[in-house]
Design a protein around this nucleic acid. Structure first.
Lengths: 149, 149
DNA sequence: CTTAAACATTTGTCTAGACAACAATAGTAA
DNA sequence: TTACTATTGTTGTCTAGACAAATGTTTAAG
């Protein structure tokens, strides 16, 4: 039955409205799963995302603003998110000598270790492909990109 | 370019991973738009959703638990969300005589009036169909439903 | 040099999702 | 009746998104 059953709404006014609710609901569903999964590593989904962003630049550090523009939740508070990671010693945070407005953030070995552990979790990474095909994933990406265009 | 450009990530490890990020990012993008739009009516997107749920049952009232299971964000705090709407006089809230554990929630004429106003906003309701076709919307629904199955 | 504008980040405040603990009520069975 | 269990909703606490204001720094203009 799909989304109608999930939000217990028999009928949507249009296929478009249904799609909007479906995106929001699926995202929430996915977020809940991610939150539950990452809990064992003591991080939130967006903290995981920040760690991955930092690994992409490693060993070079990144500025807060550069991290922010790569984040999924754009309006999230990067300062406080990074501070949480610093308290858990997953990132380093040092004032930039060259430009004292900036703060250089880099991932620590502890942060890298957590990412490696998650990388190796076959079950986590293959969950989606047990549900949809590669062709469907590609089609999904195409339509979502088009919707935001 | 699509999602790669939006999160400034040149390459994803798989089409599936890209799709997961794409769903989360698109949902956040959509949520931001909705938040901005509903601000003029002094409600949040999930408050709008609760009003629509209540209109679906109107003039019968609904229990909190029944509202909660129809919400997009399942783990949201229904008590507090409804209380916000009550303070704005968009819903009524009365203790149920027959079962004193229950609270009967119903939408007020003020709440209905806001929904009517939004109903008539052609621009809001047709935004999606300017971007994707009906066939694409249907395909999107099909794939998202399959992913959650 | 002084001043203004732009930049990079921090902080405060509100809203709300996540989740557990709690309280009150109703139903059921001995 | 009493005790047990399930139901229904409320409250507290933590995390984090939304957004505006404030702080300190650098750059550019005059």
């Amino acid at each position: 039955m799909g989304i109608e059953q999930d939000v217990k709404q028999a009928k949507f006014s249009s296929e478009f409205q249904k799609a909007m609710v479906n995106i929001l609901f699926t995202s929430s569903w996915l977020g809940n799963r991610n939150t539950a999964y990452f809990k064992r590593f003591d991080i939130s989904p967006e903290q995981f995302n920040v760690l991955r962003i930092l690994r992409g630049s490693h060993p070079s550090p990144m500025r807060l603003a550069d991290i922010a523009e790569r984040m999924i939740e754009r309006n999230s508070n990067c300062t406080r998110l990074v501070e949480k990671l610093r308290q858990k010693q997953m990132v380093n945070r040092e004032l930039c000598e060259a430009n004292r407005r900036q703060v250089d953030i880099s991932i620590t070995s502890k942060g890298l270790k957590i990412l490696e552990e998650i990388d190796q979790d076959e079950e986590y990474w293959t969950a989606a492909e047990k549900k949809i095909t590669k062709v469907e994933a590609r089609e999904l990406n195409r339509i979502l990109d088009k919707l935001r265009s």
